[in-house]
Amino acid sequence: MLVEHDRIERAQRGDDVAFNEIVQAYRKRILGTIARLIGRPEDVEDVGQEVFVRLYFSLDQLRTPEVFEPWLYRLTVNAAYDYLRRQRRRREHRMADFSEQQVLLADADASTREEDESRRRSQVRELVNSLLSAVSEEDRVLLTLKEVEGLSLKELEKIYRVKENALKVRLFRARQRVLKAFARSGAGQEAAKAGSAKAI
């Protein structure tokens, strides 16, 4: 916990100073999570503010300060869902949109050190965004929390309020769907070619 229970309770009673302290304590972590969940740095702050606004208006629904962190994560995940849904409505990413060259450049090992780092990062983000946009927002967020954010199954259990086994099944299916999308993309075709060449 980054803040004491007392501070959370004070914020629940309407203490704005305590709420500000909670924002100060968690904003970096929340913004980092959002950045990885939505993959668009330009919108991270906006979604982050939305999370804290939702926190402010729903703090009274928090029964006990012990579950504050998973609860805040849930708010973050929901805000990310909403953002991703809005984005999906605005612009449908198609798998065909990214070229094989883009895929190769984005591959972590394939990219060369001489390339401009920020450009490479931007391409990686674009590629992963395109890949993840081929699956549902739920799959995307779950997979990102587990494989990018590095949350444990126990932590995910608290956030999603579902049993570990159910989470494992969902994670497996989500990964399979992303792998399928990956296989359809240039990178996947490359891997398939490489596989068949090795088999010969």
């Binding site: 970096k28 990885r36 984005a106 591959d107 983000r125 992303v178």
Partner: peptide, 30 residues
């Protein structure tokens, strides 16, 4: 898709997600 290419794809996806983690540094706080 052969098992080999499936494994290769898995590994590539893992690398890509790791690269993604690095490509999304915590944004600067305005």
């Amino acid at each position: 898709m052969s098992f080999e290419s499936q494994g290769d794809l898995d590994a590539r996806l893992d690398r890509l997600l790791a690269a993604y983690r690095d490509a999304c540094p915590p944004p600067g706080l305005s």
